[in-house]
């Protein structure tokens, strides 16, 4: 634990970008929070909040597979591999719920654990292999925002741009398809295309967030800012904006905490900040129900 004066000093260093890499760290953490907040809100409203958990875990075998095949830690194969396995997990969940009487929550749990188990197998083979790219495992599990590279920040910025453009342009069809899928289908909205588009974007976003948030806790960044935003807002666009804001602030605060306390991974710190915001929002909401009841009377 750093002393108070140390903590103040490091805080000043962090927010004045005292090291070159801090600019990338802060930008990356904020982008992760923003993307996860927006996509997480859409997943939350479709009752797919825990899909973020499954996709995060399912990225692990993709990362390990890319390591095994290419033998080094290049960004492109890692992102492609992880996105591929995350998407495959999403498709598996959809397929199981369509064709069997297995319950949707169990389907999600099966896919999550099966893909994570496969990841564990591949990683153990990787660790035994001479190339020994094992040092990154803890960072993949829990995230290390400070080690983010400009290339990864660029990827995050690209995903953020696509997400924001997509949500802005397709706001109405997305709203209708999320609220009333039947009505959307009847109105000619291509709900299937939107669903798979959202899945693909989520998989990509989760993979890109792994460097900062880690595969285990990226779910927290998907679920918690969205759930907090839902408590504070009454309309979809407000919820999206609030979730993006809460996510971005939690991301930056998490990166700061991780910088402040060496050894603390950034993923858990981000999720804890988001959970604090949720706790405050929950308390505010508990104090307010009378107003809502009067409005309904």
């Amino acid at each position: 634990m750093p002393s108070w004066s140390e903590a103040v000093e490091r805080t000043v260093v962090f927010f004045t970008l005292g090291y070159d890499f801090l600019g990338w760290t802060i930008a990356g953490a904020a982008l992760v929070g923003l993307i996860c907040g927006v996509l997480g809100s859409l997943l939350y409203l479709r009752r797919l909040a825990l899909l973020g958990d499954a996709l995060g875990h399912a990225a692990l075998p993709g990362v390990a597979g890319a390591f095994l095949i290419t033998g080094h830690k290049a960004l492109a194969p890692l992102v492609i591999g992880a996105t591929a396995t995350a998407l495959l997990a999403a498709l598996t969940i959809t397929w199981i719920t369509r064709v069997s009487r297995t319950r949707p929550d169990a389907a999600l749990g099966i896919a999550l654990s099966a893909f994570f188990g496969l990841g564990a197998v591949l990683f153990s083979i990787l660790q035994a292999s001479p190339s020994g790219a094992q040092s990154g495992l803890n960072h993949i599990l829990f995230g290390n925002a400070a080690a983010i590279t400009p290339g990864e920040v660029g990827l995050l910025a690209g995903i953020a741009a696509v997400t924001l453009a997509g949500v802005t342009l397709l706001y109405r069809p997305l709203q209708l398809a999320s609220f009333d899928p039947v009505g959307a289908k009847l109105a000619g909205v291509p709900t299937g295309v939107l669903h798979y588009g959202l899945m693909t974007l989520s998989a990509l976003a989760i993979v890109a967030s792994v460097q900062s948030a880690g595969v285990v806790l990226v779910a927290g960044m998907i679920i918690t800012p969205a759930a907090a935003a839902r408590l504070l807002t009454r309309r979809l666009h407000a919820m999206l904006a609030a979730a993006a804001g809460i996510g971005a602030v939690s991301g930056v605060l998490g990166a700061w905490l991780s910088f402040l306390m060496p050894g603390v991974s950034s993923g858990p710190a981000m999720v804890l900040c988001a959970a604090l915001v949720y706790g405050v929002a929950f308390a505010l909401r508990l104090r307010r129900p009378r107003a809502a009841a009067e409005a309904a009377a």
Binding site: L45, R172, P173, Q175, L176, S178, F179, D180, G183, A184, L186, A187, G188, V189, R230, T233, R234, R235, L236, A238, M239
Partner: peptide, 17 residues
């Protein structure tokens, strides 16, 4: 779902948009 009454009614027009 975070929508107001006005939002829901306006959704009736989305099909032609």
């Amino acid at each position: 779902f975070p929508v107001t009454v006005a939002d829901v009614v306006l959704m009736g027009r989305y099909g032609r948009l």
